[in-house]
Amino acid sequence: MSIQHFRVALIPFFAAFCLPVFAHPETLVKVKDAEDQLGARVGYIELDLNSGKILESFRPEERFPMMSTFKVLLCGAVLSRVDAGQEQLGRRIHYSQNDLVEYSPVTEKHLTDGMTVRELCSAAITMSDNTAANLLLTTIGGPKELTAFLHNMGDHVTRLDRWEPELNEAIPNDERDTTMPAAMATTLRKLLTGELLTLASRQQLIDWMEADKVAGPLLRSALPAGWFIADKSGAGERGSRGIIAALGPDGKPSRIVVIYTTGSQATMDERNRQIAEIGASLIKHW
C-alpha cells in the first residue's frame, strides 16, 4: 500500500482519535458579512469528516447552483462504474471539434489522439474542462443518470439537468442544476469515506481534487503551510461562485467545507476574496 493510499485508508482512524471539535460562531459572522459585502445569498456548511456531524452552517438547506462543483460527483459516478466493471479508466475516447464547448483548455489539445477516461476526469476536476465533463456525462448516460446515481446514494436534493455550459445559467428560483450545502457536503463525505467506492477509487477521487489547479484564489489562499486540501470550485452566471473541499491540518483532511453564493453584482475577484476570507476565519478558529 502506498503512503497516499495509507493516508486515505486511515482518515477515519486518525479522526477518531482527534480531540473533540467545537464550532466557532466567528466564522458564521464572516459568512454573514460576506453576504453584506456581496449583496447576495451565501450558503455555508462545515462537517466533521469522521462523524458527519454538522459543526457550523448557514442557509444549509437553500438551493444554490452547483456550477462546476458537480464534476466531482460526476467522476465519482464514473469511478463507481469502474468498480462495477462497467468502465475502464484506460479506455480512450475520441471526439471532434464539434464536441468542444466553451472553456476546454485540455480537451482542445487532444482532438487528434483523444483522451482516456482517467485523463478526462483529471481534466474535468483539476482544470474544470467543460468538454471533458460533457464527454464523461455521455459515458454514464447524461445528466439524468448522474441525478439517479445521487438518488441511489441517498441524495434526493442534488440534481443535474443540463450539460456544460448551460448548467451554469443560475436563474433565480430555478431548481435545475442545483444542490443544497448540506446535501453536497453529505454526498461528498460519502464519496470520500464511505463504502460506495473502493479504496482505490476513493484515493483516485481525492487525488484529482488535491491536484486542483484553478481554485488557488479561494480556500487555498488562506491555508497555512502543512495543511491538506482537496477541492473543486465552480463559477456561473449572475454572480455565482462555489467551492467544495476536504481539508485539515497535519497533512490530512478532517472536515468537509461547502460554500456557495449566487445573485451578486460583485466582480469575480471580490467573490473570490470573500470566500478566501471565510476560509481564513475557519482556519483561525479551527
Rank of each mutant, 00 (worst) to 15 (best):
H24D: 12
H24Q: 08
E26F: 15
V29I: 14
D33E: 08
A34Q: 00
E35D: 04
Q37Y: 10
Q37E: 01
L38E: 01
R41Q: 11
G43C: 02
Y44W: 08
D48F: 07
D48Y: 01
L49M: 02
K53Q: 10
K53L: 08
I54W: 10
I54Y: 13
L55A: 10
E56L: 09
S57P: 03
F58I: 04
E61G: 01
M66W: 06
M67C: 00
M67T: 14
S68G: 15
S68A: 15
T69R: 03
F70N: 05
K71A: 15
L73M: 07
C75D: 01
C75L: 02
G76T: 04
V78H: 05
L79S: 01
R81D: 12
V82Q: 03
V82K: 02
A84L: 04
G85C: 03
Q86H: 11
Q88T: 09
G90H: 07
R91H: 09
R92Y: 12
H94V: 10
Y95P: 14
N98F: 12
N98L: 12
L100F: 02
L100N: 09
V101R: 15
V101F: 07
Y103F: 11
P105Y: 07
V106N: 08
T107Y: 05
M115I: 11
M115H: 07
M115Q: 03
R118S: 09
C121F: 00
A123E: 11
A123Y: 09
I125K: 04
M127H: 08
M127N: 10
S128M: 10
N130R: 14
T131N: 07
T131E: 11
A132L: 05
N134C: 03
T138G: 12
I140T: 02
I140G: 02
G141N: 00
K144A: 03
E145Y: 15
L146W: 12
T147V: 08
T147I: 05
A148W: 06
F149H: 02
N152E: 15
N152C: 12
V157T: 10
T158V: 10
T158D: 13
L160P: 12
D161N: 00
W163I: 10
P165Y: 03
E166Q: 11
N168Q: 14
N168I: 05
E169I: 00
P172L: 04
N173V: 05
N173M: 08
D174Q: 05
D174T: 04
R176D: 01
D177E: 13
T178D: 12
T179H: 03
T179I: 00
P181R: 02
A182V: 07
L188I: 15
K190V: 14
L192E: 15
T193Y: 05
L197A: 03
A200I: 03
S201L: 00
D207R: 01
D207M: 06
W208N: 04
W208Y: 11
D212A: 13
A215C: 15
G216I: 12
P217Q: 06
P217D: 15
L218G: 15
R220Y: 10
R220P: 13
S221K: 15
A222T: 15
L223T: 05
P224V: 05
A225F: 14
W227V: 06
I229Q: 10
A230Y: 05
G234R: 11
G234C: 13
G234K: 12
G236Q: 00
G236Y: 13
E237K: 06
S240M: 07
A246K: 12
V257L: 15
I259H: 06
Y260E: 08
G263H: 12
G263D: 10
G263R: 00
Q265G: 11
T267R: 10
M268S: 15
D269N: 10
R271C: 08
R273F: 15
I275C: 11
L282F: 15
I283S: 11
H285D: 00
H285N: 02
H285M: 04
